[in-house]
Simulated scan of single mutants.
Amino acid sequence: MEHISTTPFGRRPVSAGHLAAQAMLEAPIPEVVPDKWTIIKELTAARMAFGVSDRDLAVLHALVSFHPHDSLADGEGTIVFPSNAVLSERAHGMAESTLRRHLAALVKAQLIIRHDSPNGKRYAARGMDGGIDRAFGFDLRPLLVRLPEIAQAASEARAAALRLKRLREAVVLRLRDAAKLIEFGQEETAANWDEAEDRLRLIQRTLRRKLYADELSELNRESEALLGDVNTLLSANKTENMNGNAVLNERHLQYSNLQQIDSEPSLEKEEAAPVEPTPDPKAKPKLPLYLVLKACPDLMDYVPSGISSWAELVAAASFVRPMLGISEDAWQRAQSAMGADAAAITMVGILQRASEIRSPGGYLRALTNKAEDGAFSPGPMIMALLSTENERAN
């Protein structure tokens, strides 16, 4: 009478897990089964849920390659029977002692089942018709039985990985904004930025490590709090500046009497107001791009697809230039004097206050004259616009 042994060969004892795995030999398999490599791909994504490593899966990949069909449900059975030597070759030369350890891990995870022969060897016995009558080796049937479980775990693992990626992206973006705002604040205000800078460096160091979801969530909260404090400190010092420091003079020139601006000559007369020169008007703006866009929301009416880089801001400024009645010559001269990015910031700032400026072309030329003398930076312009937007929001 034919008997299939359910106990392991040699000194390996019977365990509760071993007996539980035997039940999968009679369990049904799904009606629709993907090809074997799709199953391995799904299991790779879900490996943490099954407690197996990438090396364990490399051995499983080698085992599955001995099944002669694309689907494990096809053919004469799900048992493969390579010797350790042949399996080692298929596993890129893995040492047999290492191979045995990974096979034991796969058995323990109930992803494969051992079918040991009387002498412990792996082989297949053929019947009178030449087909495989009995096989001793590793049964891959658990991969089919547990297919719904594998697919569910893979989906959850991918969703968790995506959440982790989005969390890290949020932290990185907030840290980038905080770093640039701190740099801007150090140059434009008299506030003490040491504490904010220390917090920034600490979060940046922590982010270099591999972090789990809970740790990243905490880091996300810390970075959000840091950015909020930086914005608060920047706003507080901006208010102080508006009460009397040297930067106020340039803001006053730009915004206090805009209704009186008629032409270039009238603007030139107002240039006598004292200003605090910036060392290099063509230097890259210290302002984060998102802050410029926040201060100048009217620009989005002309660029509905959004702006994600300085190059796109320059292109948008070039697009709105003729709508403001500014000549190509004035625009080119502004770029030459300020640099393309700063000129674009100035242009979108003028667009935001277009209803108050009677001669945008003359206004831009006046600011260009100041930039050529090293006496203009678009930073105070944006901060004043941002203050106005915040007041409207409140």
Rank of each mutant, 00 (worst) to 15 (best):
E270T: 07
N231F: 09
K284Y: 14
P285W: 01
Y290P: 02
K238Y: 09
A246G: 15
G244C: 14
L226R: 00
D262R: 09
S308V: 03
I307Q: 01
P265E: 12
L253I: 10
K269Q: 11
P297G: 02
P285E: 08
P288M: 06
L291F: 11
Y302P: 01
L227R: 02
T239C: 08
Y255C: 04
A315M: 09
N220H: 10
N257V: 12
V247C: 09
Q259N: 12
T232Q: 10
N220G: 04
N245M: 07
L234A: 07
S263I: 07
C296Q: 07
E276G: 10
R221T: 03
K238S: 07
N231R: 14
P279N: 09
T239E: 15
L248C: 12
A283W: 05
L299M: 02
C296F: 08
A225Q: 04
N220P: 00
E312K: 13
E218I: 00
S266M: 03
L234C: 03
P281F: 15
A295Q: 03
S223F: 10
P297S: 04
L293F: 04
L253N: 10
H252E: 14
A316I: 02
D214Y: 01
S256P: 01
L291K: 07
D301S: 04
L267D: 07
A273K: 11
R221K: 02
T232F: 07
A246K: 11
L253S: 05
L233M: 12
L216K: 03
L258S: 15
D301G: 08
E250A: 12
D214L: 02
G244D: 13
L253W: 15
D214H: 06
N245S: 14
A295Y: 11
T239F: 15
L227Y: 05
E271N: 11
R251M: 15
K286P: 05
L299K: 02
L248G: 09
A295V: 08
E240M: 09
K286S: 13
N220A: 12
P265F: 14
E240C: 00
V303T: 09
S217F: 05
E312I: 05
T232N: 07
W310E: 06
P279M: 09
W310V: 04
N231Q: 12
P285G: 12
R251F: 14
Y212N: 06
S235L: 10
